[in-house]
Amino acid sequence: MTMVHRWAAAVLRGDRDHDTERSHAEGTAAPDPFAWFSAGLDDLVATLRAAPDDAEAPVFLKDAPRPRLFWARRQAHETTIHSVDALAASLGGPPPTADVPVTPALAADGIDELLCGFLPRRRSTLRSLEPRTVVVRCADTGHSWSVRISEEPAVAAAGTTALAAAERPDAVFGGTAAQLYLALWNRAFEVAVDGLAELVEQWRTQVRVEWG
Rank of each mutant, 00 (worst) to 15 (best):
M1S: 14
R6F: 00
A8Q: 03
A9L: 01
V11E: 00
G14D: 03
D19S: 14
T20H: 14
T20G: 09
E21T: 10
S23N: 12
S23T: 13
T28Q: 03
T28D: 01
A30W: 05
P33N: 03
P33Q: 05
S38A: 11
A39C: 00
A39T: 03
A39R: 03
A39Q: 03
D43S: 02
V45G: 00
V45H: 01
R49D: 10
A51F: 04
D53V: 02
E56I: 11
E56S: 13
A57H: 01
A57N: 02
P58W: 07
F60E: 10
L61H: 10
L61N: 13
D63N: 13
A64K: 04
P65L: 06
P65A: 07
P67W: 03
L69G: 12
W71G: 02
W71F: 14
W71Q: 05
R73Q: 14
R74I: 00
R74V: 02
Q75F: 04
Q75D: 13
T79R: 15
T79P: 09
I81L: 12
I81W: 08
I81P: 07
D85M: 08
S90A: 13
P94E: 11
P94N: 13
P95M: 12
P95A: 10
D99E: 08
V100Q: 04
V102I: 13
P104H: 09
A105V: 01
A107M: 05
D109W: 01
I111S: 00
D112I: 00
L115K: 07
G117S: 11
R121Q: 15
R121D: 03
R121C: 06
R123M: 09
L126A: 15
R127D: 07
S128N: 12
S128P: 10
E130I: 12
E130C: 06
P131F: 15
R132H: 15
V134M: 11
V136N: 07
V136Y: 06
A139C: 11
A139R: 11
A139I: 09
D140G: 03
T141F: 05
G142L: 14
H143Y: 15
S144I: 08
W145K: 04
S146I: 15
E151I: 15
E151P: 14
P153E: 09
A154Q: 05
A157W: 04
A157H: 09
G159Y: 08
G159H: 12
T160H: 10
T161V: 10
A162P: 06
L163S: 10
A164Q: 12
R168H: 15
D170N: 14
G175L: 14
G175P: 09
A177C: 03
A178P: 08
Y181L: 00
L182F: 07
L182M: 12
L182W: 07
A183W: 13
L184V: 02
W185M: 06
N186T: 12
N186R: 13
A188N: 11
V191M: 06
A192Y: 08
G195P: 04
L196V: 06
A197C: 11
E198A: 12
V200W: 07
V200M: 11
V200F: 04
E201N: 10
T205R: 09
V207T: 05
V209P: 09
